[in-house]
């Protein structure tokens, strides 16, 4: 009798499980998985906007789209730029977030209020934050130009950061940082607060200095939080599109063209959907590789 009940329960459980996850599964398959597969398929075809217009189907062209990409002199620099952007912003995000979290965790007055107030940039929609920074970076009237001229004591008077091919990506990085530091800080702070006090006290009694405590005890303890934070940051910055598109559209002179921008441009500006799909496929592969390598690195640290 009992065995029968358990059997029924198990099938019952399975059915219940299926029922519960079915909506999620259907939506994810239809709107995420199928489009991705379709996009990969498209990358192997010659499919341009005019195919849509004339109703002619896509023709299979094997790796031609990819070969063309490799011939594009801008392709490798674009990959380099994307990586540079991701690495730069993620590192800065982590560093500043960690510092901020450490400060907030150390008995400052009004920490709770600060913790709420600091989240404001995160809540701002991306397009609006792009506008805010566009205005600050404006090359004729912008606040940033003014501050640079003040702090350089009048040496640099005409700094339109978004017009400068060497600095435009940095400008966008600053805007991205602005939006992402709050959440990073919040999560790191929570991780910090989870570190048991007794371990720290014991270390202090043993004579360990601040930085020793930090690096030998606190950070290892926070490993999983740090991993989550860094993974989120890597993915978020790798995916970044609206911010860059609104602020510079990939210019000046392609200096802020990341893989996301390149993909959009190929598909919707040059109107070559097959080529755009190829860029995206490579981009996804790169991101998966990066995240996988990152996970491996974190695991190896654990064993150490």
């Amino acid at each position: 009798m009992e065995r029968q009940l358990r059997f029924n329960k198990k099938t019952g459980d399975r059915l219940f499980w299926l029922l519960l996850i079915l909506p999620a599964l259907i939506i994810i398959t239809t709107f995420i998985l199928i489009p991705i597969a379709d996009s990969v398929r498209m990358s192997f075809t010659e499919y341009k906007m005019k195919n849509i217009l004339r109703g002619t189907p896509a023709t299979w062209n094997h790796f031609e789209n990819y070969a063309k990409l490799l011939r594009n002199k801008q392709f490798l620099p674009t990959i380099g730029r994307t990586f540079g952007f991701v690495v730069g912003v993620v590192l800065a995000q982590f560093l500043l977030g960690m510092i901020f979290a450490l400060i907030l965790n150390s008995n400052v007055r009004g920490a709770r209020l600060i913790r709420s107030v600091m989240m404001m940039p995160w809540v701002v929609p991306t397009v609006i934050s792009a506008l805010i920074w566009l205005w600050i970076f404006q090359s004729q009237y912008g606040l940033f130009k003014y501050l640079v001229s003040v702090f350089s004591l009048g040496a640099v008077n005409d700094f339109g950061i978004l017009n400068d091919t060497s600095w435009a990506l940095v400008g966008i990085g600053i805007a991205a940082l602005w939006k992402q530091i709050p959440l990073t800080t919040l999560l790191l702070l929570a991780g910090l607060q989870n570190v048991p006090d007794d371990m720290i006290e014991a270390a202090t009694i043993d004579g360990a200095g601040y930085f020793t405590r930090l690096f030998k005890i606190v950070m290892p303890y926070m490993r999983s939080v740090i991993q989550v934070v860094l993974t989120m940051a890597i993915i978020e910055n790798f995916k970044q599109f609206p911010l860059i598109w609104t602020m510079t559209g990939g210019g000046p002179s392609n200096s802020t063209t990341t893989l996301a921008i390149m993909s959009y441009r190929e598909a919707f500006v040059s109107q070559n959907l097959g080529s755009g799909a190829a860029v995206t496929t490579i981009w996804m592969l790169l991101m998966i590789v990066v995240v996988w390598v990152f996970r491996k690195l974190m695991k190896r640290q654990e064993i150490d």
């Binding site: 091919t165 210019g251 002179s253 392609n254």
Partner: peptide, 9 residues
């Protein structure tokens, strides 16, 4: 891009 190259760049 050409124009930007001869000026900005």
């Amino acid at each position: 891009t050409l124009a930007q190259n001869v000026t900005l760049n």
